Computed example of a mutant assay.
Amino acid sequence: MERKLLRLAAALVFAMVNAGSAGAEILIGMAGALTGPNAYQGEQQQQGVELAIGDINAAGGVLGQKLRLISVDDACDGGQAIAAAHKLVAENVAFVVGHQCSGASIPAAGIYERAGVIQMTPASTNPRLTEEGRPNVFRICGRDDQQGAIAGAYLAARGKDSRIAILSDGSVYGKGLTEETRRHLRNNGGAETLYDELDPGLSDFSNLIMKLQAAGIRIVYFAGYYREAAILIRNAREQGYNLQLVSGDSIASEAFIQVTGEAGEGTVFTSFRDPRRNPDAAALVERFRQNGFEPEGYTLYSYGAVQAWAQAVVKAGSIEPQAVISALRSNEFETILGRVSFDAKGDVRQPGFEWFIWRKGRYVPLE
């Protein structure tokens, strides 16, 4: 009885606040790395969310209210992510796009759950984020068990005549993706010669390169962030080592090729399907480019996250969290990514992964 009274009181308070805020703004949070080595991903998120909010506001807002963005920096760090999440909760945001790094999203998720804030990541791929069963958590990108499945099959096929090393940068993302890739490599009848973890604080991996050469490694699968991937292949080329680098979605950015130069040519990697190639996205892509920004990587996924949430609010007729969560779980949404829906865990059903290759300074689908 006491719990029912508390829930009723909370509902009445929410209704009073909502009724008194007609014409007020709805606050949206964006949490990502705005500083540090992964800031390029944070900029992708920021650009995508900002333009989505601008377009929604230009069309009249949501339920007659304009959206306003509050951005916080987590530097792709778990501790800073907790502080960033508390800040957004204190600001009374209704929705958070983020975090981008799995090691930031996972610890922040519980804070948002306790505060009744919906979180949707456009970039965090570690399965644990949605496997923990939090009802407020959604993922509009793919998962690393999906990414690892195609990476493992690829390595198994190419590793029949070449020795393979699997490397991680030790991050939550890196460890999770290497574990999935290694598992699927073995399920496909392959095996790695070397399994190791590099130090992401280093600016030179020459000692590791020598270790790889001594083991006769021809293919390296690296799961981690772009900086270490870029330095690794650049060092290999500097030493005349014809190493094939295979990696994951974090190198889907010009930031990778800016560090590697020509050394990055021929690097292959898995990443989310590229919505820039969708004819229906052409006009939006051109708008980004006219503003001097290439909407690669997580940009359009961030835009799509705002679209999905806004449409769910309209379907719910309220920004009340439980109503919006129910709408997100039971409807399909027309977004820049195409039509999307979410399963019982909060994972998106449609977008998956595909192969890309760096050619002539840009990444294109691997044919």
Results as ranks from 00 to 15, higher is better:
Tyr226Leu: 13
Gly189Phe: 08
Arg227Cys: 03
Glu180Gln: 15
Leu198Arg: 04
Gly190His: 09
Asp196Ala: 12
Gln213Cys: 09
Val220Lys: 08
Lys211Phe: 13
His184Leu: 14
Gln213Pro: 05
Arg183Gln: 12
Asp204Trp: 03
Phe205Leu: 15
Phe222Met: 13
Ser206Pro: 02
Thr178Glu: 07
Gln213Phe: 08
Glu180Arg: 14
Gly224Val: 05
His184Pro: 07
His184Val: 11
Gly189Ala: 12
Lys211Ile: 10
Leu198Gln: 02
Gly201Asn: 12
Glu228Phe: 12
Leu232Gln: 01
Leu212Trp: 10
Gln213Val: 12
Ala230Gly: 00
Tyr225Asn: 05
Asp196Arg: 05
Ala214Ser: 11
Arg183Phe: 10
Tyr226Cys: 07
Arg183Ile: 02
Glu192Leu: 06
Asn188Cys: 14
Leu232Arg: 03
Ser203Gly: 15
Ala215Thr: 02
Phe222Glu: 05
Ile231Asp: 00
Lys211Gln: 15
Arg182Gln: 15
Arg186Phe: 13
Asp196Cys: 03
Tyr225Trp: 12
Leu194Tyr: 12
Leu177Glu: 01
Ala191Pro: 05
Met210Tyr: 09
Ser203Gln: 14
Leu232Cys: 04
Tyr225Pro: 01
Glu179His: 08
Ala230Tyr: 03
Ala215Asp: 03
Glu192Pro: 12
Ile217Met: 03
Leu208Arg: 11
Leu198Ser: 02
Ile231Ala: 00
Phe222Ser: 11
Ser203Val: 13
Asp199Leu: 07
Ala191Thr: 12
Ser206Phe: 00
Leu177Asn: 01
Leu194Arg: 11
Glu192Trp: 03
Ile233Phe: 01
Leu185Asp: 09
Arg227Lys: 15
Thr181Gly: 06
Asp204Ser: 13
Asp199Pro: 04
Pro200Ser: 10
Thr193Glu: 13
Ser203Met: 12
Leu194Phe: 11
Tyr226Thr: 06
Ile209Ser: 04
Arg186Tyr: 13
Tyr195Leu: 15
Asp204Gly: 08
Leu212Asp: 11
Ala223Gly: 09
Leu232Ile: 02
Phe205Asn: 06
Leu202Gly: 09
Asn207Val: 11
Asp196Thr: 03
Leu185Gly: 11
Leu208Asn: 07
Ala223Pro: 00
Leu177Gly: 01
Gly189Tyr: 06
Tyr221Cys: 07
His184Phe: 15
Ile217Tyr: 00
Tyr226Gln: 13
Ala223Val: 03
Ser203Ala: 14
Ile233Trp: 00
Asp196Gln: 07
Glu180Met: 15
His184Gly: 10
Ile209Cys: 02
Gly190Gln: 08
Gly224Met: 09
Asp196His: 05
Leu232Phe: 02
Val220Trp: 03
Thr181Ser: 09
Leu202Glu: 13
Phe205Ser: 07
Ser206Gln: 03
Ala223Ile: 01
Arg227Val: 14
Asn207Arg: 07
Leu208Met: 11
Glu192Arg: 06
Tyr195Cys: 13
Tyr195Ile: 14
Ile233Glu: 00
Tyr221Met: 04
Pro200Ile: 10
Tyr221Val: 05
Leu232Val: 01
Glu180Lys: 14
Gly189Lys: 07
Leu185Val: 09
Leu185Arg: 07
Gly201Pro: 04
Ala223His: 04
Glu179Thr: 09
Leu198Gly: 01
Tyr226Val: 08
Leu177Pro: 02
Ala214Ile: 02
Gly216Arg: 04
Glu197Ile: 14
Leu202His: 06
Leu198Cys: 01
Glu197Asp: 09
Ser203His: 13
Ile217Arg: 03
Gly189Cys: 10
Asn188Phe: 15
Ala230Phe: 02
Ile233Arg: 01
Asn187Met: 14
